[in-house]
Amino acid sequence: MQDQELFLWSRVMEDDSRAFEILFRKYYPVLCLLSKRYTHDMTTSREVVQDIFIYLWEQRKELEISTSLKSYLSAAVRYNSIRRLNDYHKVIILTDKLPDNSRELHDHLEYAELQTSILEAIETLPEQCRKVFIMSRFDELKYSEIAQQLKLSVKTIEAHISKALRLIQAHMDKTMIGIFIAWLYDLLQL
């Protein structure tokens, strides 16, 4: 396990709910996005991942994590997301019929991390820039509508959008290198 993870996990084992919250906030988005690759439904995925965290807390004293927490959680998400599909959809997916876990899980995880880096980037945008970006790309408002609501010119809106995309790109660039190294690190731990 990486140092920070190890420290947080040791705190959790000693009933520190604050450390638990930090771990939750760190891994919850990426695990939900990973789970969605299997369930194709975000509401289900959020439930699956919440259940995993509940279990994680419940079992904190008994759990033996031999790899990294991230590998452990990703494997748990994969397993439980598939199981959830079986239980609720009555679609039988045999786990051994799925492509051998590591490659497929790795691909899904890589994608989920790409999405997470976009999410993180949006969260770190300057306030006005973030607001404009969300109104445009999530609420699907026209530039002219946003301009009217925020009492700004359309030109300013365009500039905010362009800036947002530049900042997101810069953030992704940074985190993708990070992701790659983190993943290598995990593999070496195995």
Partner: peptide, 23 residues
């Protein structure tokens, strides 16, 4: 990107509260 909308700060707060409640 609608997925990302589901995972905005407000929702994560809500989900974490839910986890605590269930625990």
């Amino acid at each position: 990107r609608a997925d990302l909308n589901d995972l905005r700060r407000e929702n994560i707060d809500k989900d974490f509260d839910n986890v605590l409640r269930q625990i």
